[in-house]
Amino acid sequence: MTVLPKDIPGDSLKVTVGTANGKPGDTVTVPVTFADVAKMKNVGTCNFYLGYDASLLEVVSVDAGPIVKNAAVNFSSSASNGTISFLFLDNTITDELITADGVFANIKFKLKSVTAKTTTPVTFKDGGAFGDGTMSKIASVTKTNGSVTIDP
């Protein structure tokens, strides 16, 4: 049996954390987006972790974005102690894959008090994996961190 590389060099799934701005007490939304989904033969499963400074940001909610089908079954998240974990699994293993680019999740943060303008990162942590529509590992994932700026 011969195994051929399935990824064209330079191609990767792009996962990007967005940015937001606000004043202390505001609730802002930071999107997590996927790009080049079709090039990577869709997404059938993924789990990953984001870190944030809990002294500056309070997670209000984490909701599935419009590219997630049947989110009540296929999407899960949790947030505590400065870490947000995400889990997606197409429970049907074929019919509810992520097949389009767009917003995977929206994180709502309540901004805490600061004395001066502060930009705090929302960054990928170690761990996690992504699988394509056949549940094979997506070897190349380009992750881009985001941030939230609090301006009193």
Rank of each mutant, 00 (worst) to 15 (best):
N42Y: 13
V17K: 01
S78F: 15
I8H: 07
P31K: 12
K137C: 01
M1I: 11
N70R: 13
S12H: 13
D7I: 10
K108H: 03
V114G: 08
I93G: 00
V62A: 11
P5F: 06
S113D: 07
D53R: 11
G65C: 08
D63L: 12
K137F: 00
S80Y: 06
A35Y: 07
I8M: 09
N42L: 08
K112M: 05
N42R: 12
F34I: 06
N47F: 01
T123V: 07
G133S: 03
S61R: 10
F104I: 03
A35F: 13
F34N: 09
P66W: 15
V37K: 07
F124R: 04
K108L: 04
D36H: 11
Y52M: 08
A72L: 13
K137Q: 01
Y49A: 01
V37Q: 14
V60E: 10
N145Q: 04
A105W: 02
F88N: 00
S76C: 07
G44V: 12
G133W: 06
L97I: 06
G128V: 03
L111H: 04
I93L: 09
S147E: 08
P66Q: 10
T45E: 00
T123N: 08
D7T: 12
T134Q: 05
I98E: 00
G18L: 13
D126M: 15
D36P: 13
T144R: 07
A72M: 14
F34V: 06
N106E: 03
T149I: 14
F124T: 02
V114I: 08
G10R: 14
V37E: 04
M1L: 10
K14Y: 14
V141P: 02
P66V: 10
N42M: 09
V37S: 12
V15Y: 05
V148Y: 05
G51N: 14
F104K: 03
G146M: 04
T142W: 15
A116K: 08
A35N: 10
V32R: 02
A79E: 15
I98A: 04
A71N: 12
A129H: 00
S85K: 01
D63G: 09
G44Q: 01
T142K: 09
D151E: 15
I8D: 10
V141E: 00
K14Q: 13
G127F: 00
D126F: 15
V3N: 11
V37L: 05
V114F: 05
D101I: 03
A38Y: 11
N145R: 08
P66K: 11
K137I: 03
G128C: 00
A54E: 14
V141A: 03
A35I: 11
P9A: 09
T118E: 03
N81V: 15
T149Q: 14
V43P: 01
K143L: 02
K69Q: 10
I67T: 10
N70K: 09
T29M: 14
N106Y: 08
K69E: 10
K23P: 10
T27K: 09
L50M: 09
G102F: 04
G51I: 12
S85G: 01
G127D: 04
V3K: 08
V28N: 07
G51C: 08
D132T: 15
A79L: 14
G128N: 00
V28S: 10
D151K: 14
Y49H: 03
M135A: 00
S136M: 05
I67P: 13
T83N: 15
S61K: 13
K117W: 01
D101C: 06
N74T: 02
N81M: 15
A139Y: 15
D11Y: 12
I67L: 12
S12F: 09
A20G: 09
K6A: 10
T144G: 07
E58D: 11
V17Q: 11
L97G: 04
L13R: 08
G127C: 04
A105V: 05
P152A: 15
K39T: 11
D90W: 04
V68G: 07
G131T: 01
S80E: 01
G51E: 09
V122N: 07
G22D: 08
A79S: 15
S80P: 05
G127Y: 00
N145P: 05
A100D: 07
I138S: 03
V3E: 14
K23V: 11
M135F: 05
S140Y: 05
L56C: 10
